[in-house]
Write a protein that binds this DNA or RNA. Structure first.
Lengths: 343, 343
DNA sequence: TTGTAGGCGTTATCAG
DNA sequence: CTGATAACGCCTACAA
């Protein structure tokens, strides 16, 4: 079990100095053709690879982007990561991913860890708990240390930094409008509690759509789910005996759960009740009936986010400070759950 | 925008030596109570955090585990990651995740990157392409450099290292047996091409189960899918006019796709055809009807994998070389897709 | 053409 | 009690 080869060892073996080896390996023509060849051959033989850690220490940059997301088991986030990786790799950056598991403490821990040398900058979508506590000192501290931070999707308004979001209000509005356009008049909303920013915004969009159609908002048709883990019961109770012809659910889980409850109540989708979800994940796509949904274009989102961060990282230090908020367009994907047969 | 504080700066400000600061911060009682307080206060004020990179360089270890998986957009892998993170964090290790996107080249790149200083050891599940090419020099090289590697799920038999797998044969067998037990006699198999190790093994299990029931294997009832991206067409053609009463699909995607095709053909699940999948993901759980499936216990798998790696990492260098292969039990989860009503 | 020295941030050892 | 020094692996400006 041989150890990793270092410049030092190569130098010793070849009886030259370390700097000679270093230069030779970079093809510097300061070094004679002869030794250059020799060194290179030797290095290849022993499979020499410069030590990243040493390089990072020297250059004071790691060429690594830290990504912190609430849940890795979440199709939307993984698509975003895909986009991030694409752009990052194309620019010679490595990506390291940490999940906060929606825990505030773990988010703080992860940030501190990465901030203390492992990454040059951050991409973050904050944990539920963080939004709830509305505590973001850790992010602020990181920024104050001179590390660029770009937030996406679940962002914090008070924080001044680059952001990439979708227009959740418009997304919610177009989902709801789609239902109304298809003739629905009593549209139920299944959403999250208000401290989840995206849920709140989508709810706003829902109301806006109704108003545009001169339909009064009926609070009895709105369910705000606190405990996701048993949303099934909540939704069941909520939909029971309710006279509705459409449902807008602010995420995939709520959507499929609603679908199941409706089915159990003997209602068919889309004939009796039309259904629209949010997030274009595998569930929506493969479900029967396939679910109409609002696509957030995760990949694109990741790409923009990464680009924004890299721009900041490579900008000559003392430029004008300027922070952008990029809004990614959503689009409505129409599938079976809103397509009445014969239409 | 202040920069990160270093020991040096603190030392200068306080007009003491660097080593004094270092010791004071670690609470060494070599240092007078007085200066200790002073230093600590100052450090807290400026939010001092030791630089990980420097520490890694010094200690020649990063306390980081590199994880390379084929696809991050894959529920099973994310659950495994969950398990890995849990154990890793509990042991003071950080986890960095890279996806190979099923590309051999990217897998090699990722390994080299992480191997050159960013991680102390590896956890890997190889890319499809890697299995197909049967080229694993990169992994071997990494191991030869003295870095422990643990493989999981998609492993390479020739490589001598710790491994955590499930018994895919038994999994396939129990899935098939479950169908047979429920009265199915003509069970179709939807699987992958043979170079995907897990697909091959599950196929083997399928055959074994049939044999145990004295049913001859009928190659007409076996579909091996090459191109996953349009598996829908393949499955459609395959199931057309086929006289079957059960389907075993070796992954979720195949299972739900089969479900859709069957439905289009006017068959109902489970009454006309019973269906069992593999991998207990969100799809299987939320689908209507919910799908019976073979659970791989991803979290547990991740935990074992991480533990194995950490054991190797912390073992005093020159122990006896000993490599374990851990087999995680699968279990069959019975859901609606195999539960005929009235049973 | 090659080598020396200093430094990136830390810690451990040893000397004051 | 405190400080100087060396070392981790690499790079580079500046000798030689």
């Amino acid at each position: 079990m041989k150890q990793k080869v270092t410049l030092k060892q190569i130098a010793k073996e070849l009886d030259v100095s370390i700097s000679t080896v270093s230069k030779a390996l970079k093809g510097s023509k300061e070094i004679s053709e002869d030794t250059r060849q020799k060194v290179k051959a030797f290095a290849k033989l022993y499979n020499y690879k410069p030590n990243n850690i040493a390089l990072s220490l020297k250059n004071r940059k790691t060429k690594t982007i830290g990504v912190i997301i609430p849940e890795i088991i979440h199709h939307f986030f993984t698509t975003v990561i895909g986009g991030i990786e694409k752009v990052a790799n194309a620019n010679g950056y490595n990506v390291i991913i940490c999940s906060s598991n929606n825990s505030f403490d773990k988010e703080v821990l992860n940030m501190e860890l990465l901030a203390s040398g492992s990454a040059d900058g951050f991409i973050i979508s904050v944990a539920k708990e963080t939004q709830q506590k509305d505590d973001h000192h850790h992010i602020l501290e990181t920024m104050n240390q001179g590390m660029p931070v770009v937030m996406f999707d679940r962002v914090i308004d008070e924080l001044i930094c680059d952001k990439v979001i979708i227009d959740d209000v418009r997304g919610g509005q177009s989902a709801t409008s789609h239902l109304l356009l298809n003739g629905c008049r009593r549209v139920a909303l299944i959403t999250t509690v208000d401290y989840i920013s995206v849920g709140k915004l989508r709810t706003k969009g829902y109301k806006r759509a109704l108003m545009a159609y001169d339909i009064e908002v009926d609070d009895d048709l709105i369910l705000k789910i606190e405990d996701v883990s048993n949303c099934s019961d909540s939704i069941h109770d909520f939909l029971k005996d309710k006279d509705i012809d459409g449902v807008f659910a602010v995420n995939e889980l709520f959507a499929v759960t609603a679908a199941r409850v409706l089915k159990n109540q003997g209602k068919t989708i889309p004939e009796d009740v039309a259904l629209v979800g949010f997030t274009d994940g595998i569930l929506s796509k493969h479900f029967i009936p396939s679910l109409s949904t609002v696509s957030q274009h995760g990949v694109q989102m990741g790409e923009r986010t990464a680009q924004l961060l890299i721009d900041k990282l490579e900008k000559n230090e003392e430029g004008i400070e300027e922070y952008k908020t990029v809004i990614i367009d959503t689009s409505l994907i129409q599938r079976e759950s809103t397509q009445k047969k014969g239409n």
